[in-house]
Structure formats: structure tokens, C-alpha cells
Nucleic acid binder design. Structure first.
Lengths: 192, 192
DNA sequence: ATCAGTCGTGCGCTAAAACGCACAAGGGCC
DNA sequence: GGCCCTTGTGCGTTTTAGCGCACGACTGAT
């Protein structure tokens, strides 16, 4: 399988053309011979990590951008209407409205959560490296991280590592609403 | 400079140990000889992209994770209190409260924006690949993407490519509040 | 003259096999 | 029982051989 070599070939050639560098110029900047660069650009050679590192350095770019295709940003605007959001909750239960599902390119997902008055929820830890954000929209609530509760008012927010037990609690008399933004550590360039 | 090889060596050995695989087992799964794997783990060899691809495949992980150190997630919870948020706006001006500044590890930043009644703002395009999210907290507003306006009510949201002219408008009589989440394309493994 | 591609050579990556090491299971003996 | 030696097995390392990466020099084309 030479998928990464193919992509490497294309991006490297595009990068060089884009900057109007000759093979010699690129060789001078990267410290890699022009012959090697030419072969890589044509997909005839699979460079070692060491030379790839020199190339990335000379081009002042990242290793990853040379190896894995940078996913194109979403072109069409995506709107979430109220009609899409209202998930039927059991009475007295938490209401979960997915605003934006997980997107590989962005690395996170966003929910709108509504907690009935007095509601308490504890969540199991997520995978290691997961970061959760709570942005209070309305109501008075508290977030539990580990064993400490953090009280939050509207317009306040908290960010915490979610790979530990955590929970939410509504301290007020009216429903509490908050945006829940969960970020997962990126896994780029999966091989299968 | 052998920084990536050093990191590759450590992470590869850790990964294998963590899964309790012998070199033979790893060789069977990756299709790379155990001798090669041993040398790479010991930092004695700089593998080619092709073999690195096979290794990533066998370990069911990403190329990037083998090459660049995965930044640790934030360990201490970060709270944004109301006191931190209130930026003094000129009267009749837009109020910008930074909730979470840009974080290299997460790739985005979050603001809370408040638009006075009738306020209209146009923004210049961001860099290519930037994705913007508008999550309406209160009020009736509209978002302009390119030349089209999208009306939004509370609890509604929109995601769009921000590398084009865009703008916000408050359609109601009361201030409109929304969370603004801006994602920047990641650049991993810079060589310098 | 400049740029891209090719040729020949050496070194390094890569795989298969052989090696050394540690540990556990037995087997014979006192 | 305790003891020593052997055998076997699994693991990581080292060796051997060759294929391919990587470079400098050359050629051709515009």
C-alpha cells in the first residue's frame, strides 16, 4: 500500500511549485539532494523519517501535512433548526439536543443539554485525552470534576479533562441549559 | 536532528509493551520484521514512510501519533467567571467576551458575543480552512455567509466555512447573545 | 544558463535466519 | 526433600544478504 507516498508526492510537488522553487533551491533549503526530491515527487521513492523531517523543516511545514491529506473544510453551511433539536425526553429527565455531531476534521461534537430543576447526573470517565467544555446558557448549575463541585452562573464556562468521573447538577428552580462541547484527541492518518 | 526518530522509538516501544505484544506478534500484525521493529524501538533505524505506514496499520494507530508528541490534555479545570468576561464595550457596540482563548491542543477558541438590538456587523474572511460556529443563546439574529442571510432563533446553531466574507445581525428588539466557536486547521509536527 | 530527469555508487534500511539469554519444566541422583 | 544438569520455549538482539534510498555527477531539453 503506497497511499501515503502518493499523497506525499503530490503535496510535495504542489508545495514546491507553489513557492516557485526549483529542485536545486528546494535541495539547498532542505539539505536533501535534488535527485531524491525528484524521485519522491514522482512517487518513486519512500523517504525515511529522517529525510522527511529535513524536508518538512526546509519547507517550514508540518510532518503531518506531508503524510495525511488535510481534510477539506465544510463548504456548505450546516444549520441546526429547533425542529431538529427537540429530542423527546422522559419527563423529569435530562434533554439532550445534538447541535453538531462529531466531525473527524474538527475533532469535537457539541450538544445542548437541559437539566430539570434539581436534576443531578454523574457521568463515567471518557477516553484519556478527552476535554469537555460546559458553557452555561441559562440557569444556575454546578459541574463536578473528580470530587469537587464548581458552581456556574449563566455566561460562565468551565473546561476540564473528562477522563475522570464527572457530573452535572441543576441548583436552581428553573431548568438549566448549557452547551456541552466535547473534544476528542485527534487520530490522523489511520492506516485502515 | 533525530527528534522524530527518538519519539518514534519511545512511543513504539510503549505502545507494544502496553498491548503486551512480543516483537514476533508485532511483526505478524504489521508485516514488518521483528528485527526492524527492534532497531526502530532502539532508535537505531529511521524507517521509511512505507514501513511506518505498515506499522501504524498493524498497531491501528495514526501516522501522526508515531511522529509528533501528542500534547497532553489540560489537567486543571479552567473556569471562566462572569467577572473575567465583561469586556467594557463602547455603548451600542458589540460586546466580545472571550470564554476560552485559542488552544494549540484543541485547535479552536470560543467567544460569547452580544449584539445590541439592530446591530449589524460584517467580518473579513479568515484564513482558508477556518470553520466558524454560531450557537444562539438568546435573541433573534441572522448570520450572513457569502451573500445569503440565515435567520436563527435561540437554541439554533449554524456551522460554516469562515474563509469568506460573513457577518452577524440582530433582528430583534433585545440584545442577541451567541457563542462563537472558531476552529483553525491544525498544524502538527512543525520541524523548526 | 537553468531546470528536470537519469546514471552510477555507497550507505542504510529491511527481512530471514542464527544467536544469546532468561526462565520454567522436567529427570536423574544423592 | 534438595541439588544439578539438561531440554525446551519464548523473547530480544545480532548477523548476513540484498534491495532501495540517497547523493553527486552527468545528460538533455527549453
Amino acid at each position: 500500500m503506497d497511499t501515503p507516498n502518493r499523497h506525499l508526492a503530490d503535496t510535495l510537488r504542489n508545495l514546491r511549485r507553489q513557492r516557485q522553487w526549483s529542485l536545486d533551491a528546494a535541495a539547498a533549503r532542505t539539505g536533501v539532494s535534488k535527485a531524491m526530491l525528484g524521485q519522491i515527487e514522482r512517487g518513486e521513492s519512500s523517504p525515511t523519517v529522517a529525510t522527511l523531517w529535513k524536508i518538512a523543516g526546509g519547507f517550514e511545514t508540518s510532518l503531518s501535512s506531508l503524510l495525511v491529506p488535510t481534510p477539506p473544510a465544510c463548504s456548505e453551511p450546516e444549520v441546526r433548526r429547533a425542529a431538529d433539536l427537540r429530542r423527546s425526553p422522559a419527563e423529569g429527565e435530562m434533554l439532550v439536543a445534538p447541535l453538531f455531531p462529531f466531525d473527524e476534521r474538527l475533532g469535537f461534537e457539541v450538544f445542548e443539554l437541559t437539566l430539570p430543576a434539581g436534576y443531578v447526573r454523574r457521568s463515567a470517565p471518557h477516553e484519556p485525552g478527552v476535554t469537555e467544555h460546559v458553557l452555561v446558557v441559562a440557569g444556575c448549575m454546578a459541574v463536578c470534576i473528580g470530587d469537587r463541585w464548581h458552581a456556574l452562573a449563566p455566561s460562565e464556562a468551565i473546561r476540564f479533562a473528562a477522563d475522570q468521573p464527572h457530573g452535572y447538577r441543576n441548583d436552581g428552580d428553573s431548568p438549566a441549559v448549557f452547551h456541552n462541547l466535547i473534544h476528542y484527541p485527534r487520530q490522523w492518518g489511520r492506516a485502515d
